[in-house]
Design a protein around this nucleic acid. Structure first.
Lengths: 197, 197
DNA sequence: GTGGTTTAGTAATGGCCATTATGAAAATTT
DNA sequence: AAATTTTCATAATGGCCATTACTAAACCAC
């Protein structure tokens, strides 16, 4: 019973996601969000709670819809393919939409006022979770002989993430996709090979 | 004639630099700045102008005092030493001060409200200038035979900067210096060498 | 010491911010 | 159709923001 919701929650979430992607958490105001979503302020509050909750929902959606290349990559047969898929996909994602370049997780709250600390922590945790998955995948690769005994899975995972994050920063600075692909190729040229093969 | 200034401009600038480093441009309020500097609001305005001008002064100081490893690196004899010096120095700088990790230029304004656009552009330009110097250095290395004919100086410069920026992000997420050094080693592991030597 | 000039510090100003009170409108239930 | 419940939209609220009048104090030249 009661009145029906007149807007599409998913569409509003997509609109909010784009605004946060472009302006970051603190840089995005409710004026920006309502304009992008075409929905009045109180509707956003009643549907999502406060700004932090809205950002978290947008972040979840970001991982679902745009970071799906991570689980894809983890299932590839060799560690090199895993790294290559992640880096090429990141280069693509960070330059795909001229309106919001770079990475939501990084643009979101690298720095900001103390009030944004909880949000910052959420993003740090999300990054750490991704990196942990990658490290485990590389540990498996080492056990399987795909990576040499001398390989350090934690360093390799951190390296792949660092290059990906660095490309996100560069994308925000206006780098072309081709340049980011060249960066990816240079990064992959350092990939260790199993010397016994 | 007239009254003397009672505070040390350099010290105030250092204090402001630290605040911007930690909180970014928009995240730093005048309440933060005056508290850190121990100087009242109007004194900051009369000495530096507005917030943007203060940030620019702090940024200049940042390059002078903390990014001096870039000109140092450019004078080293081989391209590999150049890259190594930059990456190790960045790993060190980004983790040197627990209170303000990462890089001022990146924490500053990766994303934010539209009002911060001019500041964002200043940082983009500063990054681009550094990268251009690096590219020119690698072009020289290629001409000197230190890098092979197949090497792409622009891609190598972008790669070094990407790894450095990525490490800055990771430092902000709490990575240890040791981990960043491992990332650096991985990045340097296949620096192109002149095959004719 | 006095006049002119620069700085210091208090306290204001207007604007934007996230959040919400209030009441009208719409839909479901009885 | 009447009662109830939920959403919608206007407009308010209090807080923090960058910026600045304004007054008092400190210094220099004469």
């Amino acid at each position: 019973m009661g009145r029906h919701r007149e807007f599409d929650v998913e569409k509003v979430l997509d609109a909010a996601l784009c605004v946060f992607w472009r302006k970051g958490y603190e840089g995005a105001s409710y004026a920006d969000l309502t304009e992008a979503a075409g929905v009045e302020r109180p509707a956003l509050y009643s549907a999502f709670g406060n700004k932090e909750a809205l950002f978290r929902r947008a972040l979840d959606r970001y991982y679902e819809r745009y970071m799906d290349f991570i689980p894809e990559a983890l299932q590839l047969p060799t560690s090199r393919q895993v790294a290559a898929h992640i880096l090429y996909s990141a280069a693509d994602l960070h330059t795909r939409y001229p309106g919001h370049t770079g990475c939501l997780g990084i643009n979101g709250v690298l720095a900001g006022s103390d009030e944004a600390e909880p949000v910052r922590q959420v993003l740090i945790d999300a990054r750490a979770a991704g990196e942990a998955q990658l490290r485990e995948r590389f540990e498996r690769a080492k056990a399987e002989g795909d990576l040499p005994e001398t390989a350090k899975p934690d360093a390799l995972a951190a390296f792949v993430m660092a290059v990906s994050h660095g490309m996100a920063v560069q994308a925000k600075a206006g780098f072309s996709r081709e340049m980011l692909q060249a960066v990816t190729e240079q990064a992959l040229s350092t990939w260790p090979t199993d010397s016994s093969t």
